[in-house]
Computed example of a mutant assay.
Amino acid sequence: MSTLKNRWIHTLAASALAWGAGSAQAITLTLPTTLIDAEATFKFSEMSSTLMTNMGVSVSAMGNTVANDGGWSFMMPVTQVALSQTLFPFATTPVSGEATGSSLLIQNNKGALALSNFELDFKRNILMADLTTAAGTTKSFDVYAFKVDKDLHLSTTGGLSLDMSLTNMMLTTGAQGAFMSALQLPSFLSAALPLLDFGTLDVEISPSLRFGVSDKPFMANVTAVPELSSSVMLGLGLAGIAFVSRRKLAH
């Protein structure tokens, strides 16, 4: 237990010794966090959740993801982080993070898409995910651009812990097109999506242990929403006309 809880701090210390005193060159440390209490919480903004509700769009959790706060906040276990470490000056900066095994299903009555196996790229400030639609899956698709509102805070009291906050989650140009196409959104939204702040992402990592989190990639399956055939649409139209005609005769 204690070995796992202090694994990060031991890794940092060993890496620092390997580079030796006086080294000013940065090293990248990749740390597995499947067994550590590491969580990323994505919270949709009030504006984005209201817009999606009005458009008949819902979001649900799949895989490792847990929904809370009325269904617009989602906790995704972090499964791996990479940090850049320098000794002189002593500084730790984030390089990347992964939430493998987590997934969000976004759908309405016209279509659906899934975002799975999230990745944070701090060199580009981009959140990536496997994008799945009825047409198939695109790996490591650029979904959101973000800003770092709260820089990485590092504490070694009682074991290594990290926390940071990301804001202004804005859909990339490619993601805007994917949302419009997969959900068959009305054309006027193409002008609104580039301006819409989708929310925040808070990352908190502590040395406490956890179990039951899968680090296997989640394989989403999104099926096409069947279109009504022309004969069915004609039948519905005739039924509507007959209904209106009966109401007029009744009056």
Rank of each mutant, 00 (worst) to 15 (best):
T34S: 11
L17C: 07
L195Y: 03
A182I: 11
V66R: 12
T132H: 11
K150E: 14
M75Y: 00
F218E: 08
M55A: 15
P94I: 05
L171R: 00
D142P: 10
F188Q: 15
A239W: 06
A134R: 07
K123A: 14
D197I: 05
K139Q: 13
G111C: 08
G240E: 08
F243C: 09
Q80R: 14
S165H: 07
K248P: 00
D151N: 12
S229L: 05
F90C: 11
S187C: 02
A16V: 15
A67G: 11
I205G: 02
T138G: 01
P32E: 06
P94N: 01
L209Q: 07
D151P: 01
L185K: 12
M233D: 03
G212H: 03
D149Q: 11
F146S: 03
F42K: 05
S245C: 08
D215W: 00
N221F: 01
I27R: 14
V244S: 09
L234I: 13
S229H: 05
M128R: 15
L4V: 14
L35N: 14
F90H: 10
L127N: 00
G177V: 11
Q176R: 09
P32T: 08
G22H: 03
S23Q: 10
G237K: 06
F188G: 08
P207Q: 05
D142F: 02
A220S: 11
L234M: 12
M170E: 13
E46T: 15
A192T: 14
L189Q: 10
D149T: 04
D215P: 04
L115P: 02
T200M: 04
A114Y: 08
V148C: 00
G71K: 04
A26V: 05
L115W: 03
F88V: 15
G159E: 09
T3L: 13
N221V: 14
T157V: 15
L17Y: 11
M219E: 15
T156W: 04
M169H: 03
S45N: 10
L4M: 13
G237Q: 00
K248E: 13
F198V: 06
M128T: 15
D37H: 09
D142Q: 10
G240N: 12
S103R: 02
S102C: 04
F44L: 11
S84P: 01
G159M: 07
I36N: 12
G158N: 10
T167K: 06
